[in-house]
């Protein structure tokens, strides 16, 4: 039946997340973004991409603004590229790593937020192990603070998805003509969830997810994707293959028998390059487990765009930060 209360709330938040087509209140997930806005972000990122190549790698867009990286979970790549993005936009920048287990024992998440709010920051970039944490924080901070989701549990990692589609567009400008496969631990992957939304909104006609049944979530078909258990069938003729990291802890909880079998069935070995389309590219959000989900030969080979993804991450995050900053 109806959920009279929550629907209204949801509508309000959705409206306020997207203040105008060219301006974001928060950047929490991709699901509700209009296609035009996604393309605007990509275009803006394109204009920032040049900044990194200049002798003076700075633009003064966010001068005088204070941005806080609020990470409740470990990260190297995401944390660093956000920091670089903020600094290239001339913002003041603060890194706060919070041991999540410590906050669990004492200070609540809300108390942590209140304290940081009191320091008059303008934006929080949040990573948290619980799904929905970024949304929760966005509902509980004062009006003038923007929240950027840098990964919440298994739910979303929207900036990673944006940089992935930015990278894809460099090779395949027309999203309506490509086949994309996401391979590996779909169940636990926030990157996969955000990517599935982004690709759907951009009208990619053939989105596939590939993995053992234990790592393909129930209800995946509602995301508008086709699941495959057989990797060779799944990546056949794909233009883009996105490999996901297999987290080690999964190995110990009987999701898969062992690394060896996983690599045989789902690892991107050199011979699998023959199966994808002639101009096909291989991606990975990092960090890479070499020899588990991808061979070094492929990861370092000429079809791999893994390092470009990292570089593009800075430009895309610059675009998102500048669009989300309150005037």
């Amino acid at each position: 039946m109806s959920d009279y209360k929550d629907t209204d709330l949801d509508q309000n938040i959705k409206k306020s997340d997207i203040v105008s087509q060219k301006h974001l209140r928060h950047f929490l997930d991709i699901e509700d973004l209009p296609k035009s806005l996604i393309l605007d972000i990509l275009d803006l990122a394109e204009s920032f991409a040049g900044v990194s190549g200049q002798p003076v790698k700075k633009v003064p867009l966010l001068r005088g603004k204070t941005i806080v990286n609020l990470f409740f979970e470990a990260s190297t790549r995401t944390r660093t590229t956000f920091e670089l993005a903020a600094k290239r936009l001339s913002a003041d920048f603060l890194n706060i790593n919070i041991d999540y287990s410590a906050t669990k024992k004492g200070e609540t998440l809300l108390d942590t937020l209140r304290n940081l709010e009191a320091m008059h920051c303008d934006m929080f970039i949040v990573r948290h192990p619980s799904s929905g944490a970024a949304k929760f924080i966005s509902k509980n901070v004062s009006q003038n603070i923007s929240i950027i989701n840098a990964g919440d549990g298994r739910h979303a990692h929207p900036t990673q998805a944006m940089l992935d589609i930015f990278t894809i567009r460099k090779y395949f400008p027309d999203f309506k003509k490509i086949k994309v496969a996401i391979v590996g631990d779909i169940l636990h992957s926030r990157v996969a969830r955000s990517l599935m939304h982004a690709l759907r909104i951009l009208e990619v006609p053939d989105i596939r997810v590939i993995g053992p049944q234990t790592l393909l979530p129930k209800g995946i078909e509602y995301m508008g994707v086709t699941p495959y258990v057989d990797m060779d069938k799944g990546i056949k003729d794909c233009d883009v293959v996105i490999m996901l990291r297999l987290q080690n802890e999964r190995m110990n909880s009987s999701f898969i028998p062992d690394e060896h079998e996983y690599y045989n069935l789902y690892g991107f070995s050199p011979k699998r390059l023959d199966l994808i389309s002639k101009k096909g590219i291989v991606m990975h959000p990092g960090p890479v487990n070499r020899g588990v989900e991808i061979s070094s030969e492929v990861a370092d080979g000429n079809r791999s765009v893994i390092l470009q993804q990292v570089s593009n991450g800075i430009a895309v995050r610059m675009a998102i930060l500048s669009l989300s900053m309150q005037p």
Binding site: S131, G132, D152, G153, R154, H155, A156, R190, R193, P217, K218, G219, I220, Y222, M223
Partner: peptide, 15 residues
């Protein structure tokens, strides 16, 4: 519940 919503929101499901 393990199903449509657990998958969408990335919340751990109970089958």
């Amino acid at each position: 519940h393990e199903g449509k919503i657990s998958n969408k929101l990335g919340l751990p499901g109970i089958p």
